[in-house]
């Protein structure tokens, strides 16, 4: 994870595009400017970044399905729970499964586990639209390449 860059996922452990299911790994860094403010003297991962981590797993799963042709944007979070503090150095298992694939949107059930214990979960709605700019598409494809979704030629 590079929290200040919103680079939340480190690797994909398993992905099933047919069943729309993914498990990814996110390693929380020991050092990050984020921890300077959250919190001084007690460094824990902000809940919003845990939510973002789950949303990114859901998003990359949907892009793997659509061939990185369209971009899922985070539209809503329902029943988001933060069950335990997540500390620097934690290794998170990020899971996302599709509850319903609609027309231009998908509802995903997501969770984070740390050492076998669920630390967070949420139901997320992702709205999928055309990439709004070529620069964003290029960035997302590079990230897709880094995570192993795309080969060099496909990354553009």
């Amino acid at each position: 994870m590079r929290l200040e860059n919103f680079q939340m996922l480190d690797e994909v452990e398993t992905i099933d595009v047919e069943r729309l299911s993914i498990v990814a790994i996110a390693r929380v860094p020991y050092e990050s400017p984020v921890f300077d403010g959250h919190f001084p003297g007690y460094r824990i991962m902000p809940g919003v970044l845990l939510l973002e981590t789950m949303a990114q797993a859901a998003g990359y799963l949907l892009m793997a399905q659509n061939g990185f042709a369209r971009m899922p944007f985070f539209a809503s979070a329902k029943t988001a729970n933060f069950r335990s503090f997540v500390l620097p150095g934690s290794v998170l298992k990020v899971k996302a499964d599709c509850l319903h694939a609609g027309s231009g949107y998908a509802v995903m059930t997501t969770s984070l586990e740390c050492e076998g214990t669920r630390v967070s979960d949420a139901q997320l709605t992702m709205r999928t639209i055309a990439f709004p700019t070529p620069a964003l598409e290029q960035h997302v494809r590079r990230e897709g390449q880094r995570l192993g979704f795309l080969k060099n030629a496909e990354a553009g």
Binding site: A75, S76, H100, A101, G102, S103, G104, V107, T125
Partner: peptide, 21 residues
């Protein structure tokens, strides 16, 4: 955004996929 929620609930209630796009 609210219409997205309505669409999801309708899709689920009737077992369909509203072609909103």
């Amino acid at each position: 955004l609210a219409f997205l929620d309505i669409t999801f609930e309708i899709d689920q209630a009737f077992g369909i996929k509203l072609p909103v796009e």
